[in-house]
């Protein structure tokens, strides 16, 4: 693929970077990234990946845009209320960069469709809002050998880590099993500061671009946590759990499965 003059200008700040260059920008153009959840985390990730020129970006979300989303989900605008999130997100991404092909997956990701969904992509961004989905994505990506970025946000706090097959621990190494329903609050119950999704979702986009281009070191084996009130980032080293049920040497989880649906998490945030 040769760059047009417009593309040279559009991507000039990337191409100038030694770590990206012409080759890296070409790789970005050939990259395929799936974003699960077009919400607080997925919104900034989708915008940055579209702006970067990632060739194919999938967005999976079954929800429609609600007024209460707009405080943080910056890919959606006031006139989008009521519209499927994947459609609203797709329109903004294509407006930013017509080079990008957007796959709109208007579905709830579940054990029945997750393997097929992730199979078409090089890298997955978990921008979901509930533990069932986070464990499902972890299991599916580990089983499929698919690198992905996990993130979670609540109140003034956020955390993220990257899983690469054969390297570092997975999300299940850290948290083993989801907490019982309502034991740990989600954003809809506890609130979240709008810019938190911007900080953490942008870091997820950063990891995707680094993975695609091979630039730098990925956030494997480490949980990066951000406390906005203390204004502190912290890198917490993550050991592998030798008996991890999905990424351990003798895994008991061989197929993705859904944790029982939880009523409070079914409410659209």
């Amino acid at each position: 693929m040769a760059f047009s003059d417009d593309q040279l200008e559009r991507y000039s700040r990337h191409i100038i970077l030694k770590e990206i260059g012409v080759r890296g920008q070409k790789r970005i153009g050939e990259g395929r990234v799936l974003i699960v959840g077009a919400g607080g985390l997925g919104a900034p990730a989708a915008l940055y990946l579209a702006a970067a020129g990632v060739g194919v970006i999938g967005v999976a979300d079954a929800d429609a845009v609600e007024l209460s989303n707009l405080q943080r989900q910056i890919i959606h605008s006031t006139p989008d209320v009521g519209k499927p999130k994947v459609q609203s997100a797709g329109e903004k991404m294509k407006a930013i960069n017509p080079d990008v092909a957007v796959n709109e997956h208007h579905v709830f990701v579940n054990a029945g469709n997750v393997m097929e969904l992730i199979s078409g992509y090089d890298f997955v961004i978990d921008g979901t809002d509930n533990f069932s989905a986070k464990f499902l994505i972890t299991d599916a990506c580990v089983i499929a050998g698919k690198p992905f970025s996990y993130a979670g946000i609540i109140r003034f706090q956020g955390q993220l880590m990257t899983y690469v097959p054969g390297e570092g621990p997975c999300y299940r190494c850290v948290f083993v099993d989801p907490p019982p329903p309502d034991a740990v609050p989600t954003c809809s119950q506890a609130g979240v500061i709008g810019a938190m999704g911007g900080v953490i979702g942008s870091l997820q986009a950063m990891e995707a671009v680094k993975f695609i281009t091979g630039a730098g070191k990925l956030l494997t084996g480490t949980m990066l946590t951000y406390d906005a009130l203390a204004m502190k980032f912290q890198s917490v080293p993550l050991p592998k759990r030798p008996d991890c049920a999905v990424c351990g040497p003798s895994p008991s989880i061989l197929h993705p499965f859904d944790y029982a649906a939880r009523v409070c998490e079914g409410i659209a945030l």
Binding site: G37, N69, G127, Q159, A190
Partner: peptide
């Protein structure tokens, strides 16, 4: 010692 907390949000 490190503590890691569940964070379920994202949407």
């Amino acid at each position: 010692v490190e503590f890691l907390y569940f964070m379920g949000g994202g949407e």
